[in-house]
């Protein structure tokens, strides 16, 4: 079961980085690639991940809550947002172009809040699940962080070497969304198996 979870989390990391690359590009096209805009977008992403991490941590506190099922739903949510993300960014971007820098930051943060919140919540959810069975925080965090980041590293290389060239921005987010839906399904299967085993 642990290997199954690692494989699923690797794919999740792969999809997350594809989104990050595409969304940042889309937001730079709207808000500019000057250092102020770049910093704003990067910070908004990070804050979203941080808030998501806390949210995932709070949810994971209750051992009765099924961590794998929640993870499955989170991935489903990320995929669903991913499918419409570029259209949402462009629509909001056009409305907010004339805003001040601070207002633009707030809007950017809100734009990426939902998906990054969901993404940020995945690590605490799976850590809480693994620690319950493994009883070793360092190993759980290290292993999960390893597979998730490895997935992101593969995604970054793949994006450069062929995905962006062959799929473009829209095609890349669609591919990422398909991965999320796959991950969601696999996590759901893991949840059902865990339930059956216990």
């Amino acid at each position: 079961m642990r290997a199954w979870i690692y494989a699923v989390f690797l794919l999740s990391g792969f999809a997350a980085l594809l989104y990050q690359i595409v969304w940042q590009r889309a937001l730079y096209a709207i808000y500019g690639i000057n250092i102020e805009s770049v910093t704003m977008v990067v910070t908004a992403f990070m804050l979203g991940l941080g808030v998501g991490s806390v949210a995932g941590g709070i949810v994971s506190k209750d051992p009765k809550r099924p961590a794998l099922l929640l993870f499955s739903l989170v991935e489903l949510g990320i995929g669903a947002f991913g499918l419409v993300s570029l259209q949402v960014f462009h629509a909001i971007g056009e409305i907010t172009l004339g805003m001040t820098a601070f207002a633009t930051f707030v809007v950017t943060f809100l734009l990426v809040l939902l998906p990054t919140l969901l993404m940020g919540s995945t690590l605490p959810l799976l850590v809480s699940y693994l620690v319950r069975t493994q009883k070793n925080v360092g190993k759980s965090v290290g292993s999960l962080y390893f597979v998730n980041t490895l997935g992101s590293a593969f995604a970054s290389a793949a994006a450069v070497l062929f995905v962006m060239k062959s799929a473009g921005l829209q095609g890349t987010v669609r591919a990422a969304a398909c991965l999320n839906l796959t991950v969601s399904f696999l996590a759901y299967v893991a949840h059902r198996r865990t339930g059956a085993a216990s």
């Binding site: 941080g50 991490s53 806390v54 941590g57 994971s60 506190k61 605490p124 620690v131 493994q134 925080v137």
Partner: peptide, 13 residues
Amino acid sequence: PDGRAGQRLSYVY
């Protein structure tokens, strides 16, 4: 390594 590990990790993260 208890039931609150996930939550505490989230704060570290």
